[in-house]
């Protein structure tokens, strides 16, 4: 009893004295997609792992990805796409995007994760997409959870934004989990992409507490 009281007292002392150092404000850059920016209170977080899941096969996830890649290219950056199942279609993409995009064509999810590891260690590319929608559930289930934690730890100290596209929620440690639920008809095959973006329904499934902060620099200055 006396020992338990001492332990409790000791715990209170520690809690009173130890204070976590004040966190640095999170840096972000506007994505150019207002619904996403408002959900994220500013824009895409730098040094963060995003998961964008889209249960439906036609949900506008690729449309959003192309938009973000194109915007990054127009801002003078070099984005990267790690294609887990080699499904990217250059003929559907913006021509200007093709001049800047680094396309990494994988066949297996394990290779895609290794590539993500290499690009995060490199740290030169500010926006990296990891597209795992074409990989089978069995293959993705074989990825141990610590792999994702390791990726999240690697991206944290960098200025890289890593966005993983999945068919269902997969990444337990993602800083932000978003879900896309949209429906498109055949009329959308020849519509203006900007108009189609307005039809995307995006909601936040989970978001780590965002630290208040000002954008360190606008996206145009990289």
């Amino acid at each position: 009893m006396l020992r338990a009281a001492k332990i409790l007292h000791l715990r209170e002392l520690i809690q009173g004295h130890s204070q976590a150092p004040p966190s640095a404000p999170r840096a972000y850059s506007p994505s150019g997609f207002p619904p996403l920016d408002s959900l994220l209170e500013g824009g895409l977080w730098k040094g963060a792992l995003f998961e964008l899941s889209s249960p439906a096969k036609t949900s506008g996830a690729s449309l959003l990805m192309h938009h973000l890649l194109r915007l990054s290219s127009q801002q003078g950056q070099h984005p990267a796409l790690i294609d887990g199942s080699d499904t990217f279609d250059p003929q559907s993409a913006d021509r200007f995007l093709l001049t800047r995009l680094l396309w990494i064509r994988c066949q297996k999810a394990a290779d895609a994760l290794r590539c993500a590891d290499l690009l995060l260690r490199d740290g030169n590319l500010p926006l990296v997409f990891l597209d795992l929608r074409g990989n089978s559930r069995e293959e993705l289930r074989r990825i141990p959870a610590p792999h994702w934690y390791r990726l999240q730890r690697m991206v944290e100290p960098t200025a890289v934004t890593l966005i993983a596209l999945t068919a269902h929620s997969l990444i337990p440690c993602a800083d932000v989990r978003l879900c896309l639920e949209s429906r498109f008809g055949l009329d959308s095959l020849e519509a203006d992409p900007q108009a189609l973006l307005g039809r995307i329904h995006l909601h936040v499934v989970r978001k780590r507490p965002a630290r208040l902060g000002l954008p360190i620099q606008s996206a145009a200055l990289g």
Binding site: H78, P90, C106, C115, D122, N124, P126
Partner: peptide, 30 residues
């Protein structure tokens, strides 16, 4: 936006090519 470390970047590209093959990493040209 210049690359922060060009040598590091091209070494990363070399590692990616070694992992996947030279024709699997690069910029698509129609």
């Amino acid at each position: 936006s210049a690359l922060r470390d060009p040598h590091q970047f091209f070494e990363t590209l070399a590692r990616l090519q070694a992992l996947l093959g030279e024709d699997r990493v690069g910029r698509p040209e129609l």
